[in-house]
């Protein structure tokens, strides 16, 4: 394996961001909700490294706390989508026949309903808190994973080693969980590294247009939305949170790219 600088760079940034998010209360220079009316809408300066917003809140502190929300939404929804998608796609692909046919037609229908509709309706029922967004994003993103996993399972189950396992009398569940699932490992990890940035993007986009997390949560998307309204005169309010989203997503994608090159699941680009 040749040295892969993009993985290193990506991982380094992800670790940095995670540590920052975890240690937010100790790292952030100000409390995220502390208003200072004597210092509103400041450009970056020595007191406020990234400037302040229209209520005099320190942007850097708000971004450090925002990292918690953005990262945890990205990680948790991707994991849930991965689990549901793997089970669904795995069962469909392994069973084959009419079970597979029926399950995949359901996926077709879900694919044809606009994501945004489902997201908005789910958040109307559950509310636009962390859990609402978490559930909405998890529920829409397993579908793609299911398709990928099904394709891979279809390929794997024809492999000689599966036939061998069946030959010595292994049951269906045993074959599925002990023999096929481990074979999916590389594909799943790579899928995860690409799902996380997609989820972060989706959350920030929703929050940006005011359909995502409601206050008092402040994800990077919420901050970018705040900044957007004042962008004309105070571009830093938009540029910093937007830049943060860009860099974290870039870092995830770099890691994903690197891992894909190592394991080479050809199905994901």
């Amino acid at each position: 394996m040749k040295k892969n600088y993009s993985i290193l760079f990506g991982l380094a940034f992800l670790i940095l961001a995670t540590v920052t998010a975890l240690l937010a209360p100790w790292i952030a220079p100000y409390p995220y909700d502390q208003q200072d009316m004597s210092a509103i809408l400041q450009s970056p300066n020595s007191d406020h490294l990234l400037g302040t917003d229209s209520l005099g809140r320190d942007l850097l502190s708000r971004m450090i706390y925002g990292a918690r929300v953005s990262l945890s939404i990205g990680l948790s929804t991707s994991l849930v989508a991965l689990v549901i998608g793997t089970l669904y796609g795995g069962i469909a692909g392994y069973q084959g026949g009419w079970v597979d046919h029926g399950m995949m037609r359901i996926v077709d229908v879900l694919f044809a309903i606009p994501d945004l509709l489902l997201i908005i309706l789910i958040t109307v029922v559950i509310g636009r808190g962390f859990w609402g967004i978490f559930l909405a994003l998890s529920l829409i993103s397993w579908v793609g994973v299911a398709r990928l996993v099904r394709g891979e399972v279809l390929r794997l189950k024809e492999m000689p080693y599966i036939e061998a396992a069946r030959g010595i009398g292994a049951g269906n569940w045993r074959i599925l969980f002990r023999h096929i699932l481990p074979g999916l490992g590389g594909l799943l990890i790579v899928t995860l590294t690409f799902r996380i940035p997609a989820a972060i993007l989706a959350e920030s986009t929703l929050s940006f247009v005011g359909l995502g997390l409601a206050p008092p949560f402040s994800s990077w998307g919420v901050l970018a939305n705040d900044g957007w309204t004042a962008m004309r005169f105070f571009p830093h309010l938009m540029v910093f949170p937007g830049g943060a989203i860009f860099i974290i997503v870039l870092a995830c994608n770099l890691v994903g790219d690197g891992l894909r090159d190592i394991w080479e699941p050809k199905t994901i680009v």
Partner: peptide
């Protein structure tokens, strides 16, 4: 290309 898939389109639009 990797920057292109990583930049949210609202950030790009704003820029």
């Amino acid at each position: 290309a990797i920057s292109g898939v990583s930049i949210p389109h609202f950030v790009l639009a704003a820029l």
